[in-house]
Design a protein around this nucleic acid. Sequence first.
DNA 1: CTGAAAGCGCTTACAG
DNA 2: CTGAAAGCGCTTACAG
Lengths: 346, 346
Amino acid sequence: MAADEPQRKSPGERPTIHDVARLANVSPATVSKVLRGLGAVKAESVARIHAAVRELGFRVDPLAANLRRSRRSIIGLVVPDFRNPFFGSMVASFERLAEGSGYRLVAVSSAENIEREASQIEALLDWRVAGLLVVPTEGRPAAETSILDQKVATVLLDRVPDETVFDKVNVNNAEASAGVVRELVAKGHRHILVAIASLERTNMRDRLAGIMAAASEAGIEETVEVVVCGPDVTTATEAIAARFDKGRLPSAAFALFGPATMAILREVERRGLVVPTDLSVVGFDDVEWMQVTHPPIAAVIQPIDQIAQAAWQQMMGRLAEPSDPPKSLIVQCQLDFRGSIATLQR
Amino acid sequence: MAADEPQRKSPGERPTIHDVARLANVSPATVSKVLRGLGAVKAESVARIHAAVRELGFRVDPLAANLRRSRRSIIGLVVPDFRNPFFGSMVASFERLAEGSGYRLVAVSSAENIEREASQIEALLDWRVAGLLVVPTEGRPAAETSILDQKVATVLLDRVPDETVFDKVNVNNAEASAGVVRELVAKGHRHILVAIASLERTNMRDRLAGIMAAASEAGIEETVEVVVCGPDVTTATEAIAARFDKGRLPSAAFALFGPATMAILREVERRGLVVPTDLSVVGFDDVEWMQVTHPPIAAVIQPIDQIAQAAWQQMMGRLAEPSDPPKSLIVQCQLDFRGSIATLQR
DNA sequence: CTGAAAGCGCTTACAG
DNA sequence: CTGAAAGCGCTTACAG
C-alpha cells in the first residue's frame, strides 16, 4: 500500500476532520461545510464525505469547533446543593431542555457558599460559556461584575434579588405563602412558627411578607413566630431544637425551605410528638418523600419543570437578542394541603 | 498614544495570553511557561508577567489549553438520575474531590435509559475527557467499545457488572443484605417481601444472594417473596400496589433500592396501614428523609463519601498508570436498625 | 462548487 | 533565559 493510503487510526486516537477529508478526497473546509449542512456542495462529494465519516466513525470535537467560533455552546448551571432533591430535579429538567438544543449543560454547585459560588462562576466563564443559569446562594449572584464585563447571557432563578439587570424567573412566593396561612387560620390555627433560612434571601423575605399579610388579615400577626435556620439541615435542626427547648409550641409550623421541613420533622420525632396532633406541618418546596410519610406533609408545590422551562426560554431569548431589556417571569405554585394539618377544636 | 500601546480589552472580550505577552514585553511562550510554573525564567520577566496578568485580569482558557495537550482535564460522571438524592450526594462528593485536583467534573445523567447512557458517554468522549466515572444503568456500561477504543480511564461504581475490564467500586452488598435478614429473623419475622429494581442489575442480584443465604440459614427461604419493581418510583408503586392487592402481606418488607422504599411507604400510607405495626420496613440506600419520618426507617447506609473517594482514588491511579491491571475496591455499609422494625410476639 | 490560508487561545518542541 | 514556529481540531472568510 502507498504510504499516504488513508487508513483507520490506531485505537486510542480519534479520527480528525483531516482524516475524513483525505479519505473523501476533499479539503477539510468542505467536510466542515457538509457536516454543518451549509453551502452548496456537489452531491457526489457529499456522498463520499458521509461515507468517510461513517467508515472512520468520525465525530466532531465540539470544544475544538467552538474555539474558532466566537461563542461556545455550553450553558453553565449553578445550584446551591446537589444533595437537595429540589435542585436535583432542577438539574434534571435543564438537562432535558438542553438536549437537542445545540447547547450542552454543565452543572456545578456552590455548596451554599458565596465564595465558592464566585469561583464556580469564574471557572465557568473561563470556559467561555454562552450562558449562565444561576440560583444565587444569597443576594446578587457572585462574580456579577465578571459576568457583566463578559456580557454573558444570564438568567437568575429561585433566589432572585429584587434589583437585578439579569433575566429572572420567580414563583409567586408571597401569594402562595399567604394561601398557606389562610388555610391554617381557617383550620383554627392562630399561633404559627415560621422557619426561614435567612433574611438575606429574597425568596424568604417574599414568603415572609405574604405570611405577614395574611396574618394581619386574620389579626394574628402577633403570634407569628420566626425562627432563622441557616442554610442546611444541620443548622436548621439546631435552630429548631433550640426553639422546641424553649417550651410551649405553636399549633402549626411552616417551613419556608426544604431542609427546615426535615429539621422540624426530625425534632418532632425525636421528642415523641405526633404530626398533626401535637404540631401541624407545612413545607415550602415539595419533594417526593413528603408524600410517603405518615401523614403526608402538606406543601407548596413549586413546579420545577415549568420553572426550568421558563428560565430556558429566557436564556434562548437572551442569546438571540442580547440587548433586549431584562425580563421577569413568574410561575404559579400549587398548594397541596395533605394530612399534616390538624383542624383545631374551638 | 502609539497605536500599538498595550491596553485593556474592551469589555465583552477577555484578554488572551498574547495581550499579557505584549504588556509584559515577552513572548506568549514565556508567559505560558511562567503560568504553568515551569522552566527557568528571569525574575524580572516573571514579575512583569505577573503584573500584566493582574492588570489585565487574565485567566487561561482551560479548554484552549487542553487542545494542544494530548489529554483534557475533564472527568465525566454518569449517574442514572439527578433527582434521586443518593446520586445527588454522589455528584456532590465527586465535585468536592475534583476541586483542586486539576480536573474538572462534568456530571450528566442517563435517566435510567441505556440508549441515553450510550449517547451521554459518546458526547463525553467527544469532549475528549480524561476519565469516566460511570454508574451503569444496567449490566455493562453503554458505549463500552468506544471507551475501550479510545482508551479512556474508566471507573464503574454502584451497579458494577460481575465481569468487567474496568476498575470498580462496590459495597458489600450480599453481606449487608444478609445482616438485615438476620436482624429481621431475630425479631421474629419469617415472611419477608423483597423489592428489587431488576435482576439485570448486578447489585440487586448480589443483595438478593445475601438475603437468600441468610434466609436459608434461618430456614425461611420459602417465605422470601421477591417483587420486581422497575427503575423508578412510578414503576415501583405500581408493582407494590399490585402485590398489596393480592392480600395477606408478609410482616416485613426490604426495599433494595431507594425508589422502592418510597413506593412501599406510599402504599402503606394510602391503605391506612401503620409502620411497623402492620409492616416492618427496611431500605437499602439511606437518604436524609428516612430519619425524619415517624418512625424513622431502618436502612443499609452506603457511605457515599467513601465510595466516591475510593472511585476517585482508582481514577487518579488509572490516569497515572494506564496499563495497570483493573482494580476492585469494596466499601463496607453500615446497618442502622431504626424504629421501622417491629419485634413480633411468638 | 472547492480549497489554501489564517485564525481561535493556548502549549510544545526547538533553536539560539 | 527567550522567542519563532508549528500544532491541537476545527471554522471562517476569501479567492478561484
